[in-house]
Amino acid sequence: MDFDKELDARNLNCPLPILRCKKGLSEIEPAKILKIMATDPGSVKDFQAFCKQTGHELLAQDEAEGVFTFYIKKRAN
């Protein structure tokens, strides 16, 4: 999947992946896509909850060898 910015949140624990994600989203334009990688298993539910509450769109997520990857499209302002 195409993305506009990539963020590495591997080996970070709750709530750091979410805080980094929030910061990453603030650095891109609306409708652009942020790719985030994390290893915290709790981040799967947390990113879903984050997007549900903030209106950013979780386009896709997958897992490979213990690394979770999320693609989040920034909401229109």
Binding site: C14, P15, I18, L19, C21, K22, F50, Q53, T54
Partner: peptide
């Protein structure tokens, strides 16, 4: 601090 920083991230 965890709850406050996360809540702030959730606007």
């Amino acid at each position: 601090f965890i709850l406050a920083s996360t809540a702030a991230a959730l606007d």
